[in-house]
Computed example of a mutant assay.
Amino acid sequence: MSYLIDRHPSSDSPRLGAMTLHPVAESVPRARRWFRKFIAPYNPACSVDDCVLMVSELVTNAIVHGYSDDPWIVQIEWFREGASLRVDVHNPGYPANVRLRRPGADEAHGRGLLLVDSIAESWRSGPSRFGGTVVSFVMADAWPDS
């Protein structure tokens, strides 16, 4: 797995969908449900269940770690990049605060990015074009016939 800090995300990829969520716990199951519904018409060959798990983890992290003095939202976008699927989760947090942890067996939290790191082809974090932070993952061969 690879981890990249991307300060200039590509805007050349066609966006397949997007969601805007309030930073509340109820948004996590909503993100899972709607991502599954919105990605289905594109019939990706990669595991949608794995993507839904990673979306859930990143939205949870965005809600828990996002911060702003003003009202804010979590934004999710997904893109087709050749044969790959890229999912971006944006929040108003600080990019430097995103880090892969290796929690102990007795710790209840801290495994979200570890899951993403173990499932995705790659992931990255950096400044969001909306301000704040974006954390993204890529699933290779989502459309292998491309």
Rank of each mutant, 00 (worst) to 15 (best):
M1E: 08
S2G: 13
D6I: 15
R7Q: 13
R7N: 13
H8Y: 13
S13T: 10
P14F: 02
P14Y: 04
P14H: 09
R15A: 09
A18R: 12
T20H: 10
L21P: 05
L21R: 05
S27P: 03
V28A: 04
V28I: 15
P29K: 02
P29E: 08
R30G: 03
R32L: 08
R33G: 10
F35Y: 08
K37R: 15
F38I: 10
N43D: 15
P44W: 00
C46N: 06
V48M: 09
V48Q: 09
V48A: 11
V48W: 09
D49C: 09
D50A: 11
D50K: 03
L53H: 06
L53C: 08
M54G: 07
V55Q: 00
E57Y: 06
E57C: 10
A62K: 01
V64H: 12
H65W: 12
H65G: 07
S68E: 12
D69Y: 07
V74P: 00
Q75L: 14
E77S: 09
E77R: 08
E77D: 15
E81M: 10
G82P: 06
A83P: 06
R86E: 07
R86K: 14
V87D: 01
V87A: 04
D88S: 10
H90I: 04
H90T: 07
G93S: 05
Y94H: 14
A96V: 10
R101Q: 14
R101T: 13
R101C: 12
R102G: 12
P103H: 06
G104C: 08
D106M: 11
H109W: 11
R111G: 00
G112V: 02
V116S: 02
D117M: 04
S118T: 14
S118Y: 08
A120P: 01
A120L: 05
E121T: 15
E121I: 05
W123Y: 15
S125K: 00
P127Q: 09
S128P: 05
G131C: 09
G131A: 11
T133W: 02
T133E: 02
S136M: 08
V138M: 09
V138Q: 07
M139A: 04
M139Y: 01
D141W: 04
W143V: 03
W143M: 10
P144M: 08
D145S: 13
